[in-house]
């Protein structure tokens, strides 16, 4: 309906934003007169992108796999944790403080340890991505489940719903919007986890490629890798946004509805 009619406008607007940013970038290159091994212009980066397409695709594939696996694991674990926190009242008193305390440990500081335990391969990066999104997803989902309107639950009780049905058919759907915002955060944070993991130690992936290119002063390649990473992250965000809207046709609040409302 409204959402579909807005898509071409959205696409045009996104293109406009991208073009504007490139313009500012090029302007910055001209103004500062920076040498190309410090700040390459957009065209140079596009050239590097074209010249190294095969290499970039190969490494991007690895990073994408890490991000997706981490996202799936993190969301699954977070959802399960939130559900068990709601279901087992006793567990809640013990687990909530542990969860909050665990949040005070910076996940980045754990990267070397994960490397030590899980090795140089994909597992340590997936673990990083999982860890970094686990808490936001758990917190958002738990909050959503907890704040299901009491009146709905009472109605369900009068209608004869047992506790499991109340959880699955009342609490869970009513938590979907909150879970959705958790998922959007997760989608934008998971790539950070994966790339940081690659920086600490790896032999493949975009993070590795960036470090490698940087060390050899191939700054244009580094920027190209960064560009690919951003495109991947943004696409992932929009994909999840789309999916959530499909799942929740009764409420389609997203960031871009706000942008459209301003029209």
């Amino acid at each position: 309906m409204f959402a579909d009619g807005g898509v071409p406008v959205n696409a045009l607007r996104s293109l406009g934003i991208a073009a504007g940013l490139c313009g500012i970038w090029q302007l910055l290159v001209w103004l500062t007169d920076a040498p190309h091994f410090i700040l390459p212009g957009p065209l140079r980066v596009l050239e590097a992108l074209y010249a190294n397409a095969g290499l970039l695709v190969q490494h991007a594939g690895v990073t994408l796999a890490e991000i997706l696996l981490g996202l799936m694991l993190g969301v699954l674990l977070g959802l399960c944790s939130a559900l068990s926190l709601i279901w087992f009242r006793r567990l809640r008193a013990w687990m909530l403080p542990v969860l909050v305390i665990s949040q005070s440990i910076p996940v980045f500081a754990l990267a070397p340890v994960l490397m030590l335990w899980l090795g140089y391969g994909m597992a340590s990066k997936v673990a990083m991505a999982t860890l970094i999104i686990y808490f936001p997803v758990t917190a958002a989902c738990y909050d959503g489940l907890r704040h299901a309107p009491a009146a709905w639950l009472e109605l369900a009780r009068i209608l004869g719903a047992d506790r499991r049905t109340q959880l699955l058919q009342i609490r869970l759907p009513s938590a979907l919007p909150a879970l959705g915002s958790g998922l959007r955060v997760a989608a934008s944070v998971a790539p950070i986890g994966a790339v940081v993991g690659e920086w600490v130690g790896s032999s493949t992936g975009l993070g590795y490629l960036m470090l490698h290119a940087n060390a050899r002063m191939q700054v244009d390649l580094m920027f190209a890798a960064l560009l690919v990473l951003s495109v991947m992250a943004v696409s992932l965000y929009f994909l999840i946004d789309r999916l959530l809207r499909r799942l929740m046709p009764w409420q389609s609040e997203t960031l871009f509805d706000d942008a459209r409302e301003a029209d």
């Binding site: 009146a151 709905w152 979907l176």
Partner: peptide, 11 residues
């Protein structure tokens, strides 16, 4: 039971 709010589930 019928309450002041309709308590319809939006989904």
């Amino acid at each position: 039971w019928m309450a002041q709010q309709d308590l319809l589930l939006p989904w």
